[in-house]
Amino acid sequence: MHMRAEKKPDTKAGAAGGRKTKLKAIVFQAGPLIALVLLMAYLAFATSNFLTFDNLSNVARQSAFVAIIAVGQTFVILTGGIDLSVAAIAALAASITAVLLTQPLVLFGVDFGFVPPPVAVLIGLFIGVAAGAINGWLISKFKIPDFIATLGTMTAFRGAALLVTDGLPVPSFNAGRQLPETLIWVGGGQLFGVPVSALIALLCAAAGWYVLRYTALGRAIYAVGGNRAAAHSSGISISRTKIMTYAISGLLAAIAGIILVGRLNSANALMAEGEELRSIASVVIGGTNLFGGEGGVWGSIIGAAIIGVLGNGLNLLDVSPFWQRIAQGIVIVVVVIFDQWRRRSMTRV
């Protein structure tokens, strides 16, 4: 039949195009990693002390905070949302944990004494989950845009952190205990020569990868971000998916915040300001589609590493901090331009 004769070359062309797009896809997917390697190679030649053990440990330790937040942010962005409140949640969880670790718990005038340190940490993590769940609930129950909801809660969570700490750094100079040594080790110490905080970041990423790859939640996240209507008509609960996603983001923010307390040996309500934007930048640099449905956590870890290495490298090259900000901004925009171009060329067969 005429029609069939017409069809054949089409499918052949399709298959050849398929192989080509596959190869392209691999190259593009490795893009962020290639960028990181090139950046590191350049810095290794251009500076004398970039490629030293101390310096690399330092970069890893500093990047861990953003990397952990970025894992949660990846979940949120994959659903097509955005979480501006992550840094505020980190500060809130950090503040509450630090206060519980250094001061006796007094509720409604009753003194409960000191809370055991593990319980203090668990309460901090729980606060993170609850704060994230509030975000997800607001977004799905009242149908407000993710951006607006988390912009609002960002301010509110900071306010809550100020209330908890009374606006003062914790531990304060004149009262209460010091922070436990274990926490300081987690924040700044090393295990087998590797910063503990960086190990925890990798652990979080592995857990995130597992959830995205092997659980119903992970699949629902990709479906909601890839096509909300399809997810809905296939029986997936959008609101449950959203709430769990934001709760996970909140949990990871709390983990990052508590580790940061250990690293700085201090907490305050305004810590980590602006880090929400760096987490979003990490996710985008890592290749996750800002509109949802495509991407993954390992890319975001690489994105966080690129931002960390870039900052460190510019320091070593003695670039002024003002120029550093300009450079970081340019990198983000260039990456997004590249990403757009990549997507267009992928959809052109």
């Binding site: 119903a216 479906a223 296939s234």
Partner: peptide
């Protein structure tokens, strides 16, 4: 996935 717990394994 319809009606399944989000925590279940694929």
């Amino acid at each position: 996935l319809a009606g399944k717990s989000l925590l279940s394994r694929l």
